[in-house]
Design a binder for these strands. Structure first.
Lengths: 213, 213
DNA sequence: GGCGTCGATGACGCGCCGTCAGGATTTGAG
DNA sequence: CTCAAATCCTGACGGCGCGTCATCGACGCC
């Protein structure tokens, strides 16, 4: 029943793990994020309630608010988490790329693969008619957008491409990635290859036809 | 102060206007929509409350629920309204169009002009950080999407263009229109012409480069 | 073992939600 | 004009989720 007999009092830690305070803190934070992911998955963003998340963690309601101020803040934390995991993948593609075409292809493929993988985790059971939780503009997400823009800028400049409206181009590429990615997720079998070919073809073909500012 | 003296009792209606019941009904419905537009504009979708809308109409809370079941339903009604007004414009462009290029150009221009015009009505004062109310998939909005798809299909077929993945193409075009439109709204002066040139250039240029299924 | 601090707890007050019984107004028939 | 039926407006009400805060238990440190 108890190992107190064998380890009288609390055995001293010899490793340098952080103290219990610190550990329960990260555990709680993680528990909340996990619960939130599940609740948002099952109930959708609008349908979800802070109380639903709290219930699933088993914590007291007050504890939740020690970590996040609101439902939005947890959701943003989840989005941030996704962006934070995607960012390095994007960076790798930038390093690998030799020109705009190869960067775009690599980035698109990376995004669609990422999306397909996340998809398993996320869409537990979306209620009918409810839109996806909109990706909000969290710091990390904004950073990814900015990074795409900067990568575009550098790579286009590097190959002495004629100037384009970078803001529009970035917006358009992200938009295409998002929507085509979305449609891709609905198809069986899921074809990241096909989606990549489509998106890359469209943008690469369109690039020379863009108006020059 | 009163014309009762001149029209003793209530003067009989000779026209065929609908009865008073019917009139207050449409008036109430309109009042709710107007109030909702303003409240969503000022507080954002998340921040808005059914009570806020009700307050602004001066009606009793119960009355609201005679017309709409929830905040979402009013919002959807507003979206539907927009879609319903945009649909004929789209149709006109379809009629006018001689080929895919001219249809796309016409439709894009129509959309950006529409957006710029609506913008005045909508964005009264968006709270910082809040995303646009996501355009949800109301029946009318869905119908517009379907209409775009069908127009694409017909016009491409008419000119014996090689086959493409229509779903992806439609999704991509709408995505580009949305995002570029969004960026356009943030610029001063607002340049619907430039936005149109960009979006049309991208898609028209990309079209021949698309993978053939 | 004793003490100061940190954070977990959950009851509480608040405001919004959606409902419903009652009442006011309109309608149509006589 | 009168009256009853139909309509639908009204606002008070129970319920619930929200965010707070006084309290207390557990951890870290000596």
């Amino acid at each position: 029943m108890s190992n107190i007999a064998y380890f009288p009092a609390m055995p001293p830690r010899e490793d340098n793990r952080p103290g219990k305070r610190e550990r329960t803190k990260t555990a709680n934070r993680q528990a909340i994020l996990d619960a939130a992911r599940q609740v948002f998955g099952e109930l959708g963003y609008d349908g979800a309630t802070v109380r639903d998340i709290i219930r699933l963690t088993g914590l007291a309601s007050g504890t939740f608010y020690n970590y996040y101020k609101s439902k939005e803040e947890v959701f943003d934390a989840l989005a941030d988490d996704g962006a934070r995991r995607f960012r390095p993948l994007l960076r790798v593609e930038f390093e690998k790329a030799t020109d705009f075409a190869s960067f775009l292809r690599g980035a698109m493929r990376a995004y669609f693969d990422f999306l397909a993988a996340e998809h398993e985790t996320w869409r537990v059971n979306r209620p009918a008619g409810e839109a996806h939780p909109t990706v909000r503009s969290t710091p990390e997400v904004t950073a990814v957008f900015a990074e795409v823009r900067e990568a575009f800028e550098r790579v286009l400049e590097r190959e002495h491409a004629p100037p384009v409206d970078l803001d529009y181009l970035t917006a358009a590429c992200i938009a295409v990635a998002r929507e085509v990615g979305d449609k891709m997720l609905e198809r069986r079998p899921m074809d990241t290859e096909g989606a990549t070919a489509f998106a890359v073809g469209l943008i690469l073909g369109g690039l020379p036809a863009l108006p020059r500012p």
